[in-house]
């Protein structure tokens, strides 16, 4: 991991929260409740079907995904940065690094409670 993290990557999840986030993302991928990539994440935010957005803090340059916090603020959706895009890609189930992904809503999903808990944890970072 890089010793210096871009200060614009805020809020940045710590090691424990990162593990929880990646675990939920992996389960969401299995349940088809995950959109991978900055463009698809943008579309979920525009359509209002996003639960929360996860972004990679080691993206180079970071500006190519900084529009997502702006959209997330407009739509009142929690967002969080994780340290590694490689780890995020593995959690999404793809061989390439993933810089941004979005967990989508699905009423009646088995992940509902876990997602809600994770959203609360992410929102606490912003206080």
């Amino acid at each position: 991991m890089e010793s210096v993290v871009n200060p614009k990557a805020y809020p940045l999840a710590d090691a424990q929260l990162t593990m929880g986030i990646l675990d939920i993302i992996q389960q969401a991928a299995n349940y088809k409740q995950l959109k991978k990539g900055a463009n698809e994440a943008t579309k979920t935010l525009n359509r209002g079907i996003s639960e929360f957005v996860v972004m990679a803090a080691d993206t180079e340059p970071l500006e190519i995904l900084l529009h997502l916090p702006l959209l997330a603020e407009d739509k009142n959706v929690p967002y969080v940065f994780v340290p590694s895009k490689q780890a995020l890609g593995r959690a999404c189930g793809v061989t390439r690094p993933v810089i941004a992904c979005s967990v989508t809503s699905n009423e009646g999903s088995q992940l509902k409670l876990q997602i809600q808990g994770l959203k609360d944890s992410i929102e606490k970072l912003l206080i």
Binding site: N39, P61, E63, I64, L65, L66, H67
Partner: peptide, 14 residues
């Protein structure tokens, strides 16, 4: 279009 989107984001937010 995909590369243009990346370039625009860097110009707007960088």
């Amino acid at each position: 279009a995909a590369k243009t989107a990346l370039a625009i984001r860097y110009d707007a937010l960088g």
